[in-house]
Computed example of a mutant assay.
Amino acid sequence: MKNIKQITALETFSIRHPVLRAEKPIESCHFDGDTLETTFHFGLYDSDNLLGVVSLFEAKNNLFTTEKQFQIRGMAVLKQHQKLGLGEKLIIHAEKQCSEQKQNLIWFNAREEAIGFYTKMGYQTKGLPFEIKGVGEHVVMFKAINDE
């Protein structure tokens, strides 16, 4: 039985590291804002095994005029559990959290290989692709939540 629960920033490292930062030191898994009260971390579990994580940061991107915004960071599912709908469950959970926090927009920097996944979930791209040093090419993606 798979379930999602709130976890600490430190607990996300066991997934962030092998999926997003494999060639880098474990310290690279710490993101600015990880420990703020306004940041939420969620883990998707199968029994006691953590399979995937997603983090939500209250962060404004100036590409958008929307007042209230959340940024998704550190979205990752262990390789052997990818393509099973777990990432989708995590994103839907993040969207619900945004809605509960009365946020109006969810955005993130998507890796090139993940754009198709997010497009299927109703996200749109904004602006041109850009390089995140040491990580690779990304594009900003977004979705309106709680349309007024």
Rank of each mutant, 00 (worst) to 15 (best):
1 M>G: 07
2 K>Y: 14
3 N>D: 12
3 N>Q: 12
4 I>L: 04
6 Q>M: 15
7 I>P: 00
9 A>F: 07
12 T>Y: 04
14 S>V: 08
15 I>Q: 04
16 R>Y: 03
16 R>N: 05
17 H>C: 08
19 V>M: 09
19 V>A: 04
25 P>S: 10
25 P>K: 09
27 E>Y: 00
28 S>D: 15
28 S>Q: 14
30 H>A: 10
30 H>L: 11
31 F>Q: 07
34 D>R: 02
35 T>E: 15
37 E>S: 15
38 T>D: 07
38 T>I: 03
39 T>F: 04
45 Y>T: 03
49 N>Q: 13
51 L>A: 08
51 L>C: 10
51 L>F: 03
52 G>M: 11
52 G>W: 09
52 G>S: 14
53 V>Q: 01
53 V>D: 03
54 V>W: 00
58 E>T: 14
59 A>V: 02
60 K>M: 02
60 K>V: 06
65 T>W: 12
67 E>L: 12
70 F>H: 09
70 F>S: 08
70 F>P: 03
72 I>P: 01
73 R>N: 08
73 R>Y: 05
73 R>I: 07
76 A>W: 08
77 V>F: 08
79 K>Y: 11
80 Q>R: 08
82 Q>G: 05
83 K>Y: 06
85 G>S: 02
91 I>K: 01
91 I>P: 05
94 A>K: 04
95 E>V: 01
95 E>D: 00
95 E>H: 05
99 S>N: 05
102 K>F: 10
104 N>P: 08
104 N>A: 09
105 L>R: 07
113 E>D: 15
113 E>S: 15
117 F>A: 01
117 F>S: 00
117 F>E: 00
118 Y>V: 02
118 Y>L: 06
118 Y>P: 06
119 T>I: 14
122 G>H: 05
123 Y>F: 11
127 G>E: 14
135 V>C: 10
135 V>S: 12
138 H>E: 12
142 F>R: 01
143 K>T: 02
143 K>A: 00
143 K>L: 01
143 K>Y: 04
146 N>P: 08
146 N>T: 10
148 E>S: 13
